[in-house]
């Protein structure tokens, strides 16, 4: 059914995962198309971060397959995983900056690890990436000296440092003011266009979701209940989805 030129970069096949008996992913299937931005939305605590971590094998599923470019990464050993992960960049929900390094060293880390660039070249890229996320003159600071939103942006700069083929963003704009959030959204779109990367974004922000998404997927009860183009999603008949994008407390999703 899939169009021949758009074979999936990442394909999740009937993924099951539970923590201490609590089912988080319940036979989830998802195909991520190459060179597109896919936004995954869903309830808080619904398992979005867990899903994202499966794609880069930080979490191994209880059952099911995670195919990255056709290879089931759940069966690879450490060394083979390392090779696959060189294609990835990831922004963590809580930034996960190395607190023993300065901001500059954090962004430079992937460059130092995987390129043979000279120090001044690295410095140049670091400066550029930090400027892209709207940060100037913070390179020598320690992460603990930054605000939460600033840390998030440093994390973003670090994820983009190597211009990876696949980028995973866990809530890139949460905790940012609307103006910075919009700038970050644009950065994601631009980056995607420039490098033809495959972007997978987790977001709660409906507005920004429709701004950046080529495809939107809704995670609900451990499954992808709806996936499609933003227009299709907006006009979806799925009640849970409609409740989610309209942001109402009443509906099939009961929070309290």
């Amino acid at each position: 059914m899939a169009k021949p030129e758009s074979s999936p970069v990442i394909e999740l096949v009937s993924l099951h995962k539970s923590f201490n008996g609590q089912i988080v992913l319940d036979g989830l299937d998802l195909r991520i198309e190459a060179g597109q931005t896919t936004v995954i939305i869903g309830q808080s605590g619904g398992g979005k971060s867990v899903l994202l971590k499966h794609m880069i094998a930080l979490i191994k599923p209880d059952q099911g397959k995670v195919l990255v470019e056709g290879v089931d990464i759940t069966r690879l050993n450490d060394r083979q995983l390392n090779n696959i992960r060189k294609n990835f960049g990831m922004l963590f929900q809580a930034a996960a900056l190395f607190d023993s390094m300065t901001v500059g060293e954090n962004v430079a880390f992937p460059l130092r690890e995987h390129t043979r660039l000279k120090q001044h070249e690295i410095d140049e890229i670091v400066k550029h990436k930090l400027r892209q996320v709207g940060l100037k003159g913070v390179a020598h600071k320690m992460p603990s000296e930054l605000s939460g939103g600033m840390q998030k942006r440093v994390g973003l700069a670090r994820a983009l440092a190597l211009d990876p083929k696949i980028i995973l963003f866990d809530e890139p704009t949460t905790g940012l003011d609307p103006i910075t959030a919009d700038a970050i959204d644009r950065l994601i779109v631009d980056t995607q266009k420039h490098t033809n990367a495959t972007c997978i974004v987790i977001s709660h922000d409906i507005e920004s979701t429709f701004k950046i998404a080529d495809t939107v997927a809704m995670l609900y009860h451990g499954k992808i209940v709806e996936i499609g183009k933003p227009e299709d999603i907006k006009s979806s008949k799925n009640l849970a989805l409609q409740q989610f994008i309209q942001g109402k407390a009443e509906g099939p999703i009961q929070v309290v």
Partner: peptide
């Protein structure tokens, strides 16, 4: 601390064991 703040996971994602 690195483990609970996901810094170890971050290392994995950056292909640094």
């Amino acid at each position: 601390t690195m483990r609970v703040t996901e810094q170890i996971d971050a290392l994995y994602t950056m292909a640094t064991n």
